[in-house]
């Protein structure tokens, strides 16, 4: 099908984009890669008055270093993230998860910032951003502000982005020390969204797990951290038994939905199994 008619703006700078959003009327949609928005518009589940297309805002593309952080432009495509050497070096978890996003063509258009701002709890990148304690730089009419990942994801498809604001970049702390990472995705067919997935980053020291960060995909209306498991792993022996024991609490505090692909209790079970597998792999076991 064809989207309903809309007014179209194609800014080339962030300032122009903010102006276009301000001028766009009641119902403005920001078009990043469009790989979720355009299908929804084709099905006429969304019919915005104005679409502000960030495709030509070049300053939003690319990955750079800024001291202890990687800075990923919101309009950096998944394909560019996948091949970026800085990501490969400092945040391979992002690359691993990105590789599982949809398919080759979608990754050519879809963007890192777009996927995060869309905040689909079944999306792969929100839980990764959460696990890595990423920060979200948001531009608005009154300047820029930075929101930690823990505060960025507010509810189902809802973020801390206010009307008139724009996600411009994501700052990912470079992790110091010996980190291992693993994104463990569980879905029914290659293209499908995650039923559950687990993003794990583990720092090992002297045969022990010094620190573990675990993000859960699709275990609630927002991405979640498996805090109880993280706590149990901190200082634990890097053994299969210790990890298995810690992973049993992976679903604590989650509130997964029940749908076509799984009832809540099944998702809770998967979270435990996948957490065990992801942490084990990240810990090099």
């Amino acid at each position: 099908m064809i989207p309903a008619p809309f007014a179209y703006a194609r800014p080339t700078t962030v300032d122009e984009a903010l102006q276009a959003i301000a001028d766009g009327g009641e119902d403005v949609k920001i078009l990043a890669g469009g790989q979720s928005l355009i299908p929804v518009m084709r099905l006429r589940l969304a019919a915005p008055e104005t679409v502000v297309d960030l495709d030509r805002v070049d300053e939003l593309r690319g990955v750079r270093e800024d001291g202890d952080a990687l800075v990923i432009g919101a309009m950096t495509t998944h394909a560019d993230v996948l091949h970026d050497p800085l990501i490969g070096q400092y945040a391979p978890l992002i690359a691993q998860a990105t590789e599982t996003v949809a398919d080759r063509q979608v990754r050519r258009r879809g963007t890192f910032g777009g996927a995060l701002a869309h905040a689909d709890p079944a999306g792969d990148l929100p839980s990764v951003a959460l696990a890595l304690d990423a920060e979200f730089v948001i531009a608005g009419p009154n300047g820029r502000r930075t929101v930690p990942a823990a505060d960025f994801f507010v509810d189902y498809l809802t973020t801390a982005l206010e009307e008139g604001e724009l996600l411009v970049e994501i700052r990912v702390p470079k992790l110091a020390g010996q980190w291992g990472m693993r994104y463990e995705k569980f879905n029914r067919v290659a293209q499908a969204w995650s039923i559950v997935a687990v993003a794990a980053a583990v720092r090992r020291e002297d045969g022990h797990i010094a620190e573990a960060r675990i993000g859960l995909t699709n275990m609630g209306p927002t991405p979640l951290r498996a805090r109880a498991t993280e706590a149990a792993l901190a200082g634990a022996e890097a053994s299969a038994e210790a990890i298995a024991a810690a992973a049993r609490s992976a679903a604590e505090g989650t509130s997964p939905s029940s749908d076509l692909n799984g009832q809540a209790d099944y998702r809770e079970h998967l979270a435990q199994v996948l957490t065990r597998r992801a942490v084990s792999a990240a810990a090099g076991l």
Binding site: V189, Q191, L260
Partner: peptide, 26 residues
């Protein structure tokens, strides 16, 4: 993989290829 599923009101829940799962090469 495949099943056409209706909800209790008779709506087709598997109304797009997002939910009606055709296998890919992978």
């Amino acid at each position: 993989y495949e099943e056409a599923v209706y909800d209790a009101d008779g709506n087709l829940t598997t109304g797009t290829f997002v939910d009606y799962l055709l296998p890919s090469a992978a």
